[in-house]
Simulated assay, not measured.
Amino acid sequence: MDKVIGSAAEAVADIPNGASLAVGGFGLSGVPDVLIGALHAQGAGELSVVSNNCGVDGRGLGVLLAAGRIARVTGSYVGENKEFARQYLSGELEVELVPQGTLAERLRAGGAGIPAFYTPAGVGTQVAQGGLPWRYAPDGSVAMAAPPKETRDFSNRPYVLEQSITTDYALVRAWRGDRHGNFCFRRAAANFNPLAATAGRITIAEVEELVEPGELHPDEVHLPGIFVQRVVVLTADEAADKQIEKRTVRA
């Protein structure tokens, strides 16, 4: 039951080339930076990443992206990362853009064992009709486009069929957790982290504060330990290293 691993390097050591990863975080909030750094040092490449966004230049998943380790991204936001845009538009990176709520539900459905679901999001657009560029050719033409999706009417309203997402691994960051892998997330970090964690076949979580089993009240648990296989405890400095994507202050 004790799922604590000695180091982040040990926790990600078996992630192979070509693995698929669900990664928590929203912007720079709740991003598992220590695990991402360990994976960068480990050297795995040709990764398929599912995450709301791909970090920023030099931070979050942007570290793996700049090193050429990511082959495909499924996400809902491209902005704030110039290298992401460059690789996508030059044909170096395959990108599947998904409406943000649909992406969240695809991860949740994967974790719940639901293979697919219907949603009104994207009806009447290229999300449903197909044609969104997944990969560009070096000359700027579309080398690979999204296929059309099945649509169906319910109560005289059209819906599009979306498939759920599961991945080989998930990397997430939690605020507090115990050795059994029960976690709670704080404020904005409770974004894609619980969803990503349930979608991974092997979920690795870095936690800022480790408590003993029984110290967390059941009502505090956002993610039960059944979904978590490995726990990495952060140092005080690692836990405090939280950057702000866009700092806005009064004059």
Rank of each mutant, 00 (worst) to 15 (best):
N193K: 03
E220S: 13
G181W: 03
V221M: 06
A190E: 10
T235V: 06
A104W: 13
P138R: 09
I202N: 08
A189C: 07
E94M: 11
E209H: 12
V95D: 03
D153C: 09
R135A: 05
T125M: 15
F154G: 10
F185E: 01
Y159F: 14
P120F: 11
A137Y: 08
F192Y: 11
A128H: 05
V228H: 01
G111E: 00
A121C: 14
N156F: 15
Q126M: 12
V211Y: 13
V127Y: 14
K149Y: 10
R187I: 08
E212Y: 10
F192E: 00
D153K: 10
Q126W: 09
L97M: 11
E206H: 02
A128S: 15
P218G: 09
R186N: 10
T102E: 12
F154S: 12
I165M: 01
G200H: 00
R176T: 06
I114Q: 00
R186Y: 11
V123E: 08
F227P: 00
P133K: 03
T151S: 13
W134I: 09
D237G: 13
T167P: 03
R176L: 08
I165L: 05
L103N: 05
I165N: 00
A145N: 08
V232Q: 02
D219R: 08
L171M: 14
V160K: 04
A146T: 10
L210A: 06
L107R: 01
E220M: 08
D153S: 09
R230I: 07
D241Q: 15
L171T: 01
E209V: 07
Y159M: 08
P138I: 07
A116F: 12
Y169C: 04
G200Y: 01
R179P: 09
H222F: 02
G200R: 00
A240T: 09
E208F: 02
S155F: 15
G113S: 05
T166W: 03
V95N: 07
Y136V: 04
V232M: 03
